[in-house]
Nucleic acid binder design. Structure first.
Lengths: 110, 110
DNA sequence: CTGTTGTTCAACCATAAGGTTGAGTATCAG
DNA sequence: CTGATACTCAACCTTATGGTTGAACAACAG
């Protein structure tokens, strides 16, 4: 199993910040402007704008200008990429967890 | 959908570095020592040791001292946490991708 | 004991990341 | 036009991150 160079890096980096995950969570309820997103974040407007920029360059979020607002919406595709990456480990971790369960039940039987 | 404070942060941060994902990929083939892991990384021994330390503190990797070697092995549990987090978006993104597909096929029909 | 191997630790450096503020640009409201 | 709103950008600061080197230590080999 060898790691190939891909776009995973910006996606994982984008997801590695709690503020940005909060933004994603908010957007999963529907589109929102930068101002809407900034409100619950205890952070300046410009700070939020930066975070959204990072999410946009990781292609997790799309911006569309509507009047003077930037309406942001979630783009699910990169999440599917993460899922694919995880799936490469799924078989392995299922096996390992089964091992653990088996070990535990052997322990219980004694 | 609100983000609760959790252990996701160190896990995502740990996964956000390509060297660390390479280490995980290597470990998915079976346990390996720090030296083994350093070899394909074009990085110093100590650097690799640091990366492994980060993976250990994110609980993605376990170390066990065997003689003078530190044998590292993959711990699948945190990956399951990431998967759970992703699953909260799964329904949403499936719906969105269906929308896109539908849009594309409408486009094809024209 | 001596030397080599495997690893960690401390110190250091360069760059990136996360945040701020203040100025500047569109857009709408009156 | 004037002013408020929604944002972006540039500059700056602080701390984290990713890497290095060199010294130290523990374990095995001879």
């Amino acid at each position: 199993m060898v790691e190939q160079q891909s776009s995973l890096d910006p996606i994982f980096k984008a997801l590695a910040d709690p503020a940005r995950r909060t933004i994603l969570a908010q957007l999963s309820d529907g589109p929102a402007s930068i101002g809407d997103l900034a409100a619950p974040l205890d952070m300046s407007f410009a700070g939020t704008s930066k975070h959204v920029g990072i999410l946009v360059s990781a292609q997790l979020v799309q911006k569309e200008k509507v009047g003077r607002r930037q309406v942001c919406s979630l783009n699910p595709k990169p999440l599917a990429e993460i899922r694919d990456w995880l799936d490469r480990y799924a078989v392995f971790w299922t096996a390992r967890l089964d091992e653990l369960e088996a070990a535990v039940s052997r322990y219980d039987d004694e």
